[in-house]
Amino acid sequence: MSLLAFHDVHALYGQARILNGVTFEVGAGERVALVGRNGVGKTTVVNTLCGGTRVAQGRIELRGRPTKDLRGYSAAQNGIAIVLQGRGILPNLTVEENLLLGGATARRGPWTLAKIQELFPILSERRSNPGWALSGGQQQMLAIGRALMANPDLLILDEPSEGLAPVIVDDLAALLVQLGTDGMGILLIEQNISLIHRVAERFYVLSKGSVAESGSLHNVSRDELQGHIAI
């Protein structure tokens, strides 16, 4: 089943057209990468999904249903959790409060506060600390933990490797593969070729606001993918 689909989506910030006919799809349990260099519209895809842009043309489907009036909460209420670029940690809330916020939709599933704290023990140790007091890597754990608290069917991560040490990126890759294996859809929006190659099965290359290439990552080498991103 398709969890998220963009069909020929054109999106604008004010009068500036950022997406020029983006088409892609992520199904249940799929691990998909949306790749591209800076400024091609990757984050605009997330913003459009959250109702932050004006969709001039095309349609967006959540769980196979066309959705016209997208709001910030629409994705979450349709089982899609988003780890924002920059992580979106609420700095004055404690670690535990940030996690509880992720459970706002009250969807049932395997992920609970205890389970997240078991996965990331540091979040349990620092549960009373404010979000701003965490390191970059810990904030990324918190952002992913908060997203998992929603028990999503699809997890979208926008540039999750940004600013992380290589060893933490390795852990992140292993976690995302495991989540995918457990049946969660993953949409990884990234530039980090190594992470993309380890996590995703399919890819879409975004260039100048539209999809320039797509296919299976099994048939594409890292160098070829790097070449696609350089389009």
């Binding site: 932050g52 910030g72 988003i82 924002l84 979106g88 609420l90 004055n92 706002a104």
Partner: peptide
């Protein structure tokens, strides 16, 4: 819980909304 949502939305309404909360 609503108090938590209020504090969250007072800090960042967009991030709060993305968690599924109708701000």
């Amino acid at each position: 819980r609503i108090g938590l949502y209020v504090r969250a939305a007072s800090t960042d309404a967009r991030v709060t909304s993305i968690q599924g909360i109708n701000v």
